[in-house]
């Protein structure tokens, strides 16, 4: 399911997308997430966290049997820089937001800083990770 990436935060490059329609795409999603996080100056440990979150999200969407597009992009909130993973999930329309959030927290809650679900006009899952000020790899 294609969607234009959107975010409650200011979006910035790099913007990358991965189509999820077969098992191999999970690996590609993980690789793309690592690359994006590396470009944004995240530490190797943070890159691994984000890659884990991307792979988990890709795996969840793959189970539906439909084609999905996973988007990765930089985000900024004031002086805070981060990265966002998002995927449109129209098949979640009508599902209680609390239940979706609970399931996502169990799956990826330890790997990312924020989980958001936008339901209007159609559900989009957004995962955010922010750069730590004390991260020795921080580039900006």
């Amino acid at each position: 399911m294609a969607h234009r990436p959107r975010s409650p935060y200011a979006m910035q490059p790099p913007v990358m997308s991965v189509v999820i329609e077969k098992q191999m795409d999970i690996m590609i999603a993980r690789n793309t997430a690592r690359r994006t996080a590396s470009l944004l100056g995240f530490s190797p440990a943070a890159q691994a966290q984000l890659a884990g979150a991307a792979a988990t999200l890709a795996e969840l969407t793959l189970k539906t049997g439909d084609r999905h597009e996973l988007h990765l992009n930089g985000i900024r909130d004031g002086f805070k820089d981060g990265i966002q993973l998002s995927v449109a999930t129209p098949w979640l329309s009508g599902a209680p937001e609390g239940n979706i959030m609970l399931a996502l927290r169990q799956k990826v809650g330890d790997l990312v800083d924020e989980i958001l679900i936008e339901t209007d006009p159609s559900p989009v899952i957004m995962l955010m990770m922010w750069q730590r000020k004390d991260d020795p790899h921080k580039t900006s």
Partner: peptide
């Protein structure tokens, strides 16, 4: 390579956690 395993590795104090897939060498070099 699951989310849980990644978190366990990082919580154990690892500086990086790289799954042995076709991109492993690239990530290791990086």
């Amino acid at each position: 390579d699951g989310a849980q395993a990644t978190m366990s590795g990082l919580q154990a104090g690892a500086d990086d956690y790289i799954p042995k897939d076709i991109f492993a060498t690239e990530h290791l070099m990086n």
